[in-house]
Design a protein around this nucleic acid. Structure first.
Lengths: 224, 224
DNA sequence: TCAAAAGTGTTAGATTTACACCCATGA
DNA sequence: TCATGGGTGTAAATCTAACACTTTTGA
């Protein structure tokens, strides 16, 4: 039984904007495209949507293929559907962004896929409309981070307040006042201070904090 | 030349959430579905993406088909791609929302298409995942209206401050203080008072205002 | 002993919120 | 004349933003 035969079909792909935070910078994973058309151009990592999977599932699968990680924070950026966006065929792509902790990504697996972390402010020209996808993803991600405590997804599970502040500064592209920042953090009971101290970035050492999801769900008073 | 033959193709449709403001209420256009599968169910108005048009163009065309209006404010809501979302075939749909002034929509054309305005708070069960589309569109529209002066798209080009306030109240689902509201409007130089008076809703009459796009572009200090 | 990052409060200014009465008019 | 919606200002409370010094410790 077919209902829609008079209409034409298209290929559907997903493209992933994977954000990481390293060396105080917000970064994105890109690689050289390994298929025609566009072989060799810088590109986001993507894949095709199969007949038996939802578009979201295709994105989840693609992210897993690339990173070996599950349960990533992932959101849809939108559909990109210009007729000639793909130089070969009519392909409509649904972009997704994801947040990962750079340290969770096995370096060998990363090299196998030939992708690398690039500073969000130094992204080269990318294949097709991928630059536009990155721009839109970045904007949505910024908004999301200002509304919900998902920044933790970019950090190790234990982090210092300086790391957290640097993260927000990198995402917003603006400096924050240290005392005001820490004041606000103190008001959020779901950001828990531990007794552990990190000495990798200072002689004195900085207390490590953790995000308590349960506490957040009970009192989600987030404001940065 | 074909590059992607090993992958499967899907039908792509667009679905439109068309917002209007009437009788002090925020409304959406819905109709009874006139095709199989799902014939007779309440549904959003939609259409298929043709081979030679972008997804955005398909939405623009569909909106024009339905309303006879061009240059509507329109934004993408997102892709809806569950495998079984359409009971007949694999169809992925890209949802768009649009803002129109109810008075601009010719009633005869509306009846020809068999659609009607329904209060956003009284939407019946809709075909497939259309209720989810409406929810997401509403949320995005609320955010947009809080950030940019697009509410005017839902009003006649001349409007009273009471109308404008009622609009924002309907969209946010919360009452606003009249004096504070008008204070803020006064600060926005791109909302211009005219010497015209509307007497349809009071004996005394209320001054009519208009949105000056050029002035907004020069000093876009919008804050509601 | 000193360089480098961690940690800590206060205050002025800006913004937000709450609130009540007079005005103009047509019925 | 009166019912109805239109129009206006002030003050308290809250929030935001600016600002500088002490602590700890490994090199």
């Amino acid at each position: 039984m077919t209902f829609y035969n008079e209409h034409s079909k298209v290929w559907l792909s997903v493209d992933c904007i994977i954000f990481g935070f390293d060396e105080g910078k917000l970064k994105v994973l890109i690689g050289k495209r390994q298929m025609d058309p566009g072989r060799g151009e810088w590109s986001l990592y993507g894949g095709f949507v199969a007949a038996d999977e939802s578009v979201d599932d295709a994105a989840t699968r693609t992210l897993y293929e690339l990173t070996g990680l599950r349960n990533l924070f992932m959101r849809q950026v939108g559909a990109f559907g210009n007729v000639d966006r793909d130089p070969g065929e009519r392909v409509v792509s649904i972009a997704y962004y994801a947040l990962i902790n750079v340290k969770d990504y096995d370096d060998e697996l990363r090299l196998q896929h030939g992708v690398k972390w690039v500073d969000i402010n130094e992204i080269p020209q990318l294949y097709s409309d991928h630059n536009e996808m990155v721009r839109k993803a970045r904007k949505l991600m910024q908004q999301k981070l200002a509304q919900e405590p998902v920044g933790f997804r970019l950090l190790p599970s234990l982090f210092t307040l300086t790391q957290l502040q640097n993260l927000y500064e990198a995402v917003n592209g603006a400096e924050l006042d240290k005392r005001n920042f820490r004041k606000r953090i103190k008001e959020m009971d779901f950001i828990e201070k531990t007794e552990l101290v990190d000495k990798t970035s200072s002689k004195r050492g900085a207390y490590l904090y953790r995000f308590n999801k349960r506490a957040y769900n009970e009192a989600p008073n987030f404001k940065i």
